[in-house]
C-alpha cells in the first residue's frame, strides 16, 4: 500500500470535510485557509487530478452555470480507497508520534 503525501492528505481531508460542496475553488479556498497561504490553481488541480486517477477520488460534473462562464463544476467525492489511504496515514502518524520518548527527557 502506497503512502500518500502530506499535501494529498490535506486535499483528501478537505474533500471529506466539504462533502457535497467539494469542487476546485471551494477546496482551494479551504486548504489555503487551513495552511495560511494562498495556493495557485495549478497547485491544487494537479494533485486533485492525480488523486482521482489513482482512484482515491471520484469526479462528477454539475450543470453549467452562468457565473462560471457556462462551464461545469467538477465535484470530487472520497472513494473507499481514498478513505483507506487516509486511515493508513493516520495510523502511521499515531504510531510514529506515540512511540516517541518524552522530549524533555532527552536533555
Amino acid at each position: 500500500m502506497e503512502i500518500i503525501s502530506r499535501m494529498e492528505e490535506v486535499l483528501l481531508l478537505a474533500v471529506w470535510k466539504l462533502q457535497q460542496d467539494a469542487y476546485g475553488l471551494a477546496i482551494r479556498q479551504h486548504v489555503s485557509e487551513l495552511l495560511g497561504k494562498e495556493l495557485s490553481v495549478g497547485a491544487v488541480y494537479i494533485p486533485l487530478e492525480r488523486l482521482a486517477k489513482r482512484g482515491f477520488l471520484q469526479t462528477r460534473e454539475s450543470e453549467p452555470t452562468a457565473i462560471r462562464g457556462g462551464r461545469r463544476k467538477r465535484f470530487y467525492t472520497l472513494t473507499q480507497e481514498g478513505m483507506n489511504a487516509l486511515v493508513t496515514v493516520k495510523k502511521i502518524h499515531e504510531t510514529a508520534w506515540g512511540e516517541l520518548p518524552d522530549i524533555s527527557l532527552e536533555y
Binding site: L25, V41, P64, G69
Partner: peptide, 11 residues
C-alpha cells in the same frame, strides 16, 4: 481543464 477555467471565473 474547462472546469478549472470555471472555477477561476467564479472566483
Amino acid at each position: 481543464h474547462a472546469s478549472l477555467l470555471g472555477d477561476m471565473a467564479e472566483e
